[in-house]
Design a protein around this nucleic acid. Structure first.
Lengths: 209, 209
DNA sequence: GTCTATAGATAGATAGAC
DNA sequence: GTCTATCTATCTATAGAC
């Protein structure tokens, strides 16, 4: 087996297991068994469990952040330009996420993992995650500020946070790992087109008086 | 030390530690040390770690659900009555949560714990949590349905889910356990009045075309 | 009821043969 | 690079003295 193939198999298994069972709930033994590699190969290729988690995050968030940065910087435009449209700002931030998670083989595992990290304040990997997404959040806020120059800052910050919360839950709901009990509350028809519904919903909310 | 005092000390410590470090990340040793009780007393009083988690949830969710049920049933009213106002429906569901979490001594620990459980599909305690809140969610949906009789069902379900996501994040943000990196994005002024901002935000969103 | 001591299982990490 | 074997630490749970 080639080096990169082994690394990829470990990364894929880790993404799925960390998402479903959590970082602490996943043993390296279970992980390497699922990946079909040897127990010691995690330490050989990544250096340890925590370093593996970082690699799992970087593999997806690197390209994702690049796309978001490009979208948002275009919208922010020059200092004197016209204010961007709300829906465009929302789409610029959120569309890359939905597109990325839709295109992955292990449907929704990564978005579930992100949802967990957002909800777990002291979990390893959290600070690394924030480091990676912080520039995106700051650009997102800058664009919202331009779209709503009259809104008081604390209110705009709250609203931005509500948007992130709604997005996070929409992403979790798309996954195959939606647990029994919630899944039955939502008919299958509701599992498609999440991104579009979300943008309409949040655009109306942001324009509240 | 009296029986109930020992049990309460264990429950308080468990609520805080499960919220910050997670169920798996909290050892009974750390828990009993923080509570100032003996290691074996968890098994004596509760029967084990998982049974303790259930008690932690029931202690808060029992009274909370009772209040929500009363609020929502009043709003749902009789079959022929007028449709309820959106803001009233949102308040009926959400206000008890914010009020409860505001009044607790260990500020925000419980809401953080709920946020975790929502994000962790296979964690123990999740199915028990759903069992406890399911009646509330069904009543919430019934009230929304009455307030928006013309909205297609899948769209209303999505919107309800977005509401829950935004609420969950608003609750996490209120807590003292908001991690560094996010906290600095939100000035202290934004930490008060979350419930009110949220209702305005979501009312506008639900009324989107 | 509270405590000590310990059983029994499992974790991450690593040394060394091949 | 891959594998086996093993070290050391830590976990939940419980038996039994007081």
């Amino acid at each position: 087996m080639s080096q990169t193939e082994t690394k990829d198999r470990i990364l894929d298994a880790a993404e799925g297991l960390f998402a479903r069972q959590g970082y602490r709930g996943t043993s390296l033994r279970a992980l390497t068994t699922e990946a079909g590699v040897n127990l010691a190969s995690v330490h050989y290729h990544f250096g340890g469990k925590e370093a593996l988690l970082k690699e799992v995050l970087l593999r997806r968030l690197g390209p994702l952040s690049k796309r978001r940065q490009a979208n948002l910087k275009r919208l922010r435009g020059e200092p004197g330009a016209a204010a961007p449209c709300v829906r465009d700002v929302l789409r610029a931030f959120m569309a890359p996420t939905f597109v990325l998670c839709e295109g992955l083989p292990n449907e929704g595992a990564f978005s579930l993992l992100i949802g967990r990290i957002l909800a777990e304040p002291e979990e390893p990997g959290r600070s690394y995650f924030l480091e990676l997404v912080r520039p995106d959040l700051e650009l997102f806020y800058a664009c919202l500020k331009r779209a709503f120059p009259a809104l008081p800052e604390p209110i705009l910050l709250w609203r931005m946070h509500f948007c992130l919360g709604a997005m996070s839950h929409a992403l979790s709901l798309r996954t195959a790992a939606v647990p029994p009990g919630i899944r039955e509350l939502f008919p299958p028809a509701a599992s498609a087109g999440a991104g579009g519904h979300l943008v309409s919903f949040l655009a109306a909310a942001l324009e509240a008086p």
